[in-house]
């Protein structure tokens, strides 16, 4: 019961702030709604027993990535809003049509009954109370090579971002 209330509240907030992100006129307001949205997603992770991910979500997404967006919005000091002189309706119709196609696809997938747990893969490591140790163990054993690759990806992205943002490109 308590879990249901928590789920519906958080889900409503996630969707509500998600809609606000894409409808807000002011980009800075958009970013603020995005942060709130991410915080509620972190709440959802706590509900699902993934405390470590919840904290990572707040540190990396809300505290890192979105701050970057905020910086860029402040650096690109816009004199006129980019969507002022557009044919809004044409874009809107096209966008909604494409989105409806994706939605139909998702509904088709969801129409199949989801596979029961028995048919799926057996748990590699039974999830205990210590979520952090669990994730860490998997990350440094089974997924060590993807983990190292991810670090390389981040390094490349960092160097790329610095090169791109230099003035004398």
């Amino acid at each position: 019961m308590g879990q249901a209330i928590a789920f519906y509240t958080i889900a409503a907030c996630i969707l509500g702030f998600g809609v606000l992100v894409i409808t807000a006129k002011n980009t800075v307001h958009s970013i603020m709604f995005l942060v709130v949205n991410f915080l509620f997603v972190a709440g959802l992770y706590v509900l699902l027993g993934a405390q470590f991910l919840a904290v990572i979500q707040v540190v990396v997404y809300a505290g890192g990535i979105v701050v970057l967006y905020l910086f860029v919005v402040m650096l690109v000091n816009l004199k006129r809003p980019p969507e002022a002189h557009q044919d809004r309706r044409r874009r809107g119709r096209l966008g909604v049509t494409c989105s409806l196609v994706v939605l139909a696809e998702l509904v088709a997938i969801a129409a199949y009954k989801y596979v029961s747990p028995a048919a799926g893969l057996p748990p590699a490591l039974p999830m205990g109370p210590d979520n952090v140790a669990q994730v860490g163990m998997l990350l440094y054993t089974d997924y060590l090579i993807p983990f190292e690759l991810a670090s390389m990806l981040l390094l490349v992205a960092m160097v790329g971002a610095i090169v791109l943002a230099r003035r004398d490109l």
Binding site: M32, V35, L39, V55, V58, V59, A62, G63, V67
Partner: peptide
């Protein structure tokens, strides 16, 4: 604590 501190930047 790290997570909470990173929100204050906003």
């Amino acid at each position: 604590i790290v997570a909470v501190a990173s929100i204050g930047v906003y």
